[in-house]
Design a protein around this nucleic acid. Structure first.
Lengths: 188, 188
DNA sequence: TTTCTGTTATTTATATATAATTTATAAAGG
DNA sequence: CCTTTATAAATTATATATAAATAACAGAAA
């Protein structure tokens, strides 16, 4: 019985960063917020969003006057939710009442891991499609995985970085597809 | 009988600084060394090496935890050797025994002198290759002497500075080549 | 004039390469 | 005092590239 080649890869992947957005459905006076809270940075002439940093979970949020927010840095969905709650609590300190439970939408996930085998990036760049490899510019090979939102960064030691997916299931699907595609061109 | 033009140059050169490195082949506890010796300066968050100053020969040494050292300031090889011996004696004050006679490697020599003739740096900058001359930035003309490790700083009064060579013989060769190259384009 | 790019800012892993850090030294000009 | 040149040591920092939402401004193309 022939085992599928894919089984020989020791896939391993860990979510390192989640970017999520939400709308508080309420105008936010950013200047007032910036003056009231020490954990904020606001330079409207540089960027329209106010930056709010949360210690636990360690995250950073971008808050716009429209009430739209972007949360970055969390490593799990539960942490994202915790962070959003903290953000709302912070905003409510300036007497603004957020009446809704904002719907959180994951916009991007960054995960890192390994596929357990060394990769010859130079040959991969020519045998695999949808790749970009300029070692003198960046040591990783960029692979936009067809059929998925994922873009991978592949390194010669087998370490990988996956960006672009929006859920852990889609992330795992993408990694499986990456390994499958690599197997097809027999990288090992 | 036509005398060679080169003979009209009154070449003169003196070594002003020698930078040499060596390895003591022994780990050095820099914190302990800094606390025990007054002639040291150690700011690891600023620079990983400990600075040790020796009065005679007047030199300064950079000592790293790996046991690698860099000695600067000596004007002759014998002074470099004396300085390294003093450095080892200093280190042995904190009970560390350096069992070897480290092999000293000269990494750079700085020498100054004169070629005995005034130089029109502006015209030299255009007639001689491998030069850089920006008088409003620095009054000397920079000349990277092809075929040697030497880089010269040439001044309008004929004074010169030579950097980059690793031995007195190579230094003299470089100066000879400088004079020869200047003669070719008849600077006088 | 309108629309479409490209900055601006945030996070995060990955891995290369520079650059800056320190020390000494001469030269001439600011 | 600074400028410039070369040179080693080891450590930290930054730049390189990836995705994504926010939104305000810029410049450019239509």
């Amino acid at each position: 019985m022939v085992k599928k080649e894919i089984k020989t890869f020791k896939k391993e992947i860990k979510i390192q960063n989640i970017v999520a957005s939400a709308s508080l459905e309420h105008e936010i006076p950013l200047i007032k917020l910036a003056e009231a809270l020490p954990n904020t940075e606001y330079n409207p002439e540089q960027f329209p969003g106010l930056v709010m940093r949360i210690k636990e979970p360690k995250t950073s949020a971008l808050i716009f006057s429209s009430g739209k927010i972007v949360c970055t840095g969390a490593k799990s969905m539960s942490k994202v939710k915790e962070a959003v709650d903290k953000i709302i609590q912070n905003i409510e300190k300036i007497k603004i009442k957020i009446n809704i439970q904002p719907q959180i939408k994951v916009q991007n996930m960054v995960a890192s891991g390994s596929i357990g085998v060394d990769l010859n990036l130079t040959s991969l760049a020519t045998t695999l499609d949808h790749t970009e490899y300029e070692p003198e510019q960046f040591p990783g090979l960029v692979y936009k995985c067809p059929g998925t939102r994922a873009t991978f960064l592949l390194f010669s030691n087998g370490k990988i970085v996956c960006t672009g997916t929006r859920s852990e299931s889609k992330l795992r699907e993408a990694v499986d597809m990456l390994v499958e595609n690599l197997s097809k061109i027999k990288v090992k």
